[in-house]
């Protein structure tokens, strides 16, 4: 047992520092994905809420596709397909130029596309739950459409969307493990490396799981705090 704990030490023969580095990359990837995912989600939700049937269809199609594909497949399609597409585009405008999509960038793109698909459903439900009168009231106060959205509607719908988004964040955190398959040194891949050298798969995969679990639990606490903050004005009515 002490031998196993020793394997987790920091320094050249322990794997503690490598695993933590991996966990750090996992967190960075998830955090970098979040803003893109949220923006995509909100935009697609607005598409689905638009009056034009064509725009609605576009939004629905986006959700159908990226909610239906396995995340691993989306990742492969972006990683391999995105690269081919980018090269073909560049060959048209600047032949002989090469471009490299790092696995980190491919990971962010794929994960935020998937996050956006699910988040758009959460946002749509929230948009529909904010009473129409709120928008009209904002207009009556002389706010522009954008101001009304930013200052009146968005804070309300964000409060409603928060629990759903919190769940999606947890899903995202776990989905980052898939990028280990496209050669990004995240927590799971670092664990694979450690297993390859030490031949202690059970111990190391268990440690990796516990690290993921710790990240999930911390996230759950943070989301709960955020929800509490956004619900301040509603505490009395409960």
């Amino acid at each position: 047992m002490t031998e196993l704990i020793g394997l987790l030490s920091f320094g050249s023969d322990g794997w503690g520092d490598e695993l933590l580095e991996g966990a750090f990359l996992t967190l960075r990837l998830a955090l970098a994905t979040l803003p893109f995912g949220l923006v995509i989600g909100l935009c697609v939700a607005l598409l689905k809420n638009a009056e034009s049937p064509a725009l609605q269809a576009l939004g629905n199609l986006y959700t159908t596709i990226f909610r239906g594909l396995p995340e691993l497949l989306t990742l492969f399609i972006i990683y391999f397909g995105g690269q081919i597409l980018l090269k073909e585009m560049l060959d048209v405008v600047a032949p002989g130029t090469t471009v490299e999509v790092s696995s980190f960038v491919a990971g962010i793109i794929a994960l935020s596309i998937v996050f956006g698909a699910f988040a758009s459903e959460v946002f749509l439900a929230a948009i529909r739950a904010v009473p129409k009168g709120q928008g009209e009231a904002a207009a009556a106060l002389g706010l522009s459409r954008w101001q009304g959205f930013r200052l009146v509607l968005f804070p309300q719908l964000f409060r409603l969307a928060l629990p759903g988004l919190g769940n999606l964040w947890l899903v995202l955190l776990k989905d980052t493990a898939l990028v280990s398959v496209i050669a990004l040194d995240d927590l799971l891949r670092q664990t694979n490396v450690a297993v390859g050298v030490t031949k202690e798969p059970f111990f190391f995969y268990l440690v990796a799981c516990l690290l993921y679990l710790a990240m999930s639990l911390v996230s759950t606490t943070c989301v709960a705090l955020l929800e509490k903050r956004y619900n301040r004005g509603f505490a009395g009515s409960r």
């Binding site: 980018l86 585009m89 560049l90 405008v93 600047a94 002989g96 130029t97 090469t98 471009v99 490299e100 999509v101 790092s102 980190f104 960038v105």
Partner: peptide, 21 residues
């Protein structure tokens, strides 16, 4: 022009571009 636009987008995406004549 379109070329520099795409290159700018590529750089913004965190990608590297290099010519190799």
């Amino acid at each position: 022009n379109a070329k520099s636009l795409i290159l700018a987008a590529a750089v913004a995406l965190g990608t590297t571009a290099a010519a190799h004549a």
